[in-house]
């Protein structure tokens, strides 16, 4: 049963919560999260965009700040003084894409940085220091797609590494042999989608495993015998959506679970009902509802985790020169 005050999506409260959180800069927490500020901004902004309230924050200033987080190597740090990392490079490009400002960066410099992190086995390091994780494979491919520079890396090798992380249950882990985890499943499925290699996925087996993540609460967990959590509404649903199996889960029950995790007083969404809200879960809750076609929310693209409108704009622009070339008379 959903709490009576949470039957509807509290869009106004959530937008206010995100804006207020962004402006409360005096807490220890705010300071201690400096190193991943770019991702935090991406979560908040994308949520606002889905809510149709992107105008609540000053885009020009955000874009200027994002550009200041870029390092000479081409990658972006988590905030102004931090070293470049693939995680934040993707967040930076996603924010720029939201504002249609990808032209502000030198595309080839960023692409070279991403390419420099690919290893001979096809995997990606997160930064120059050698941590390997399929999250970084996704960050690399997604970033390069946004830049229209996918060919800067060995895409077949990248796909082969991701496929090597596939487990007996159809799911994926961080590195080969690691336990299947729904968060990792999103990164691997989306990476293979960008690489054009969804055929490497054992589709029915994986989607059944993802369905099995739904618990009696209606919420989804990330691994067998673990607790449900709102963030998996994104991790599991995006993968099911990419694979065309969204209808395999009980969407009404999941919707109720997410709605029940809202804070009707201060706005925001938590991991489970009655817990403390945060921007991360607020974004993933709203994104999950968007994937399920919630009225009042802009649709989100399951592969790029950006509003469909933004992804379509990029696609459209790339098609134009191709279409023009096709129409040109053959000399």
């Amino acid at each position: 049963m959903v709490h009576p005050a949470r039957q509807e999506l509290l869009a106004e409260q959530h937008a206010r919560y995100i804006v207020e959180f962004s402006q409360n800069k005096d807490s220890f927490e705010y300071f201690a999260t400096e190193h991943f500020r770019l991702s935090g901004v991406y979560w908040g902004l994308t949520a606002l965009h889905l809510l149709g309230r992107q105008a609540a924050l000053d885009g020009a200033e955000i874009v200027a700040w994002v550009l200041r987080c870029q390092r000479p190597c081409g990658g972006f740090g988590g905030s102004e003084r931090h070293d470049a990392h693939l995680l934040y490079t993707l967040s930076a490009l996603q924010i720029l894409a939201l504002y249609d400002e990808l032209d502000c960066v030198d595309v080839d410099t960023v692409a070279r940085y991403v390419a420099s992190l690919q290893q001979p086995d096809g995997s990606f390091w997160g930064d120059e220091w050698g941590e390997t994780d399929t999250r970084f494979s996704y960050c690399a491919l997604s970033a390069l797609w946004l830049l229209d520079r996918l060919h800067a890396v060995d895409v077949p090798a990248a796909a082969a590494y991701v496929a090597a992380c596939k487990n007996f249950d159809g799911g994926f882990g961080c590195t080969p042999g690691n336990e299947s985890h729904a968060g990792q499943v999103f990164t691997c499925v989306a990476a293979l989608d960008i690489a054009g290699r969804l055929d490497l996925i054992d589709r029915d087996l994986l989607c059944w495993w993802l369905c099995e993540r739904q618990t009696r609460s209606g919420g989804l967990n990330g691994r067998p015998e673990k607790l449900q959590d709102v963030c998996y509404s994104w991790w599991c649903l995006s993968a099911l959506s990419i694979l065309g199996r969204l209808h395999w889960i009980d969407q009404a029950a999941l919707t109720d679970f997410i709605l029940d995790c809202q804070d009707e007083d201060g706005g925001g969404i938590s991991d489970r009902p009655e817990d403390q809200v945060d921007v991360y879960h607020t974004f993933f809750g709203i994104a999950g509802l968007s994937l399920m076609g919630r009225p009042g929310l802009a649709p989100i693209d399951p592969t790029f985790a950006l509003p469909v409108e933004v992804v379509d704009r990029l696609r459209e622009r790339r098609r134009e020169p191709v279409a023009a070339a096709a129409e040109a008379p053959v000399a």
């Binding site: 402006q23 300071f31 901004v41």
Partner: peptide, 28 residues
């Protein structure tokens, strides 16, 4: 120390924790 430039920004200005910000300024 190398302090973060103080540019006023509604979304992303970095708050100052005097005790801990100090350590980071020297590391930078």
């Amino acid at each position: 120390p190398r302090a973060l430039p103080a540019t006023p920004q509604p979304v992303v200005a970095i708050g100052r924790d005097e005790l801990l910000g100090d350590l980071m300024d020297y590391l930078w």
